[in-house]
């Protein structure tokens, strides 16, 4: 959905999205990395199961919720990627144990 700038010289950061290796850049938020990944990263809501993607990118809408390193319902737009981070696209409600 979004493409990167040619002149972006930031260091690559390797993350996994549902097990698929994705190259993000240093300083990307999880949501930015997902939107630039070219993958289908739509989550589904806990209420009706409707598909959603990030909407506000500034921490207020909670449509960027994602499972990060085994913890559900994290705000992807407020978390910076780290090397080796494991991201899972969340479908519906989170599980209590994750």
């Amino acid at each position: 959905m979004f493409k990167r700038l040619q002149a972006d010289t930031r260091k690559p950061v390797g993350i996994f999205v549902d097990g698929t290796a994705v190259t993000a850049r240093e300083g990307d938020t999880v949501s930015a990395a997902l939107l630039a990944s070219g993958l289908d990263v739509r989550r589904t809501t806990a209420v009706s199961g409707a598909p959603r993607l990030p909407y506000c990118m500034m921490g207020v809408c909670f449509d960027c919720l994602v499972t990060v390193d085994g913890t559900g319902n994290r705000q992807g737009c407020l978390i910076t990627v780290r090397e080796g981070m494991r991201i899972e696209i969340q479908k519906g409600k989170r599980e209590i144990g994750r």
Partner: peptide
């Protein structure tokens, strides 16, 4: 999905150089 605020696009643009 695919509907965002303009502010969201601007955040992506400023912080990650995404268009």
């Amino acid at each position: 999905p695919g509907v965002l605020t303009a502010g969201a696009a601007q955040t992506l643009l400023k912080s990650s150089g995404l268009v």
